[in-house]
């Protein structure tokens, strides 16, 4: 199996890597680029722990081939904070204790950011359905949803 050369942008930086044709973007992020913030919880698109943005679309990186990232813009949890300034969602997750074990947290944050970019004023129901592809087994979702809605309110200037 010969490897494929891929040039892509990850969190604003141009990166190149070699990947096998059947390697996923998640494998590449974690194993080649050492960006281990995206997690593999299922490898079948059911848990959302590997959520990233590819060309401004929220996707499961376990369901994208590394080869497909050629020429694409990829954004991961590692690019969410601006240096030491956390994104408002990251701050609110901490304030609201919206994480327990924290393994689903990167996926939730990436997905929630995508939600607020598309819909700055989601209802609770909209937030819950948007995030239905992100499984959390610890929190019962209550504090996560509160953190997302509170961030939305803050970002709207309320």
């Amino acid at each position: 199996m010969s490897k494929i050369h891929v040039t892509t942008t990850v969190n604003g930086d141009e990166v190149e890597f070699l990947c096998e044709p059947d390697e996923t973007l998640l494998d590449v992020l974690r194993d080649e680029l050492h960006l281990t913030g995206s997690k593999e919880g299922c490898a079948s698109g059911d848990c959302g722990a590997c959520s990233v943005m590819v060309n401004d679309r929220l996707v499961c990186s376990c369901l994208v081939l590394g080869a497909e990232a050629d020429g694409a813009k990829v954004e991961t949890i590692e690019g969410m904070a601006d240096g030491e300034n956390l994104h408002p969602l990251q701050k609110k997750f901490l304030e609201h204790a919206a994480l327990q074990c924290g393994v689903c947290t990167p996926g939730f944050l990436v997905a929630a950011k995508a939600l607020l970019e598309k819909n700055p004023d989601p209802t609770e129901t909209e937030a819950r359905y948007w995030l239905a592809g992100n499984l959390c087994r610890c929190t019962g979702y209550d504090k996560i949803i509160r953190a997302v809605l509170d961030t939305a309110a803050e970002m709207r200037g309320n």
């Binding site: 959302g48 590819v54 996707v59 499961c60 994208v64 939600l115 995030l131 592809g133």
Partner: peptide, 9 residues
């Protein structure tokens, strides 16, 4: 069909 993430693809 699937989640928001799945809808992206």
């Amino acid at each position: 069909i699937g989640s928001t993430q799945i809808q992206g693809r």
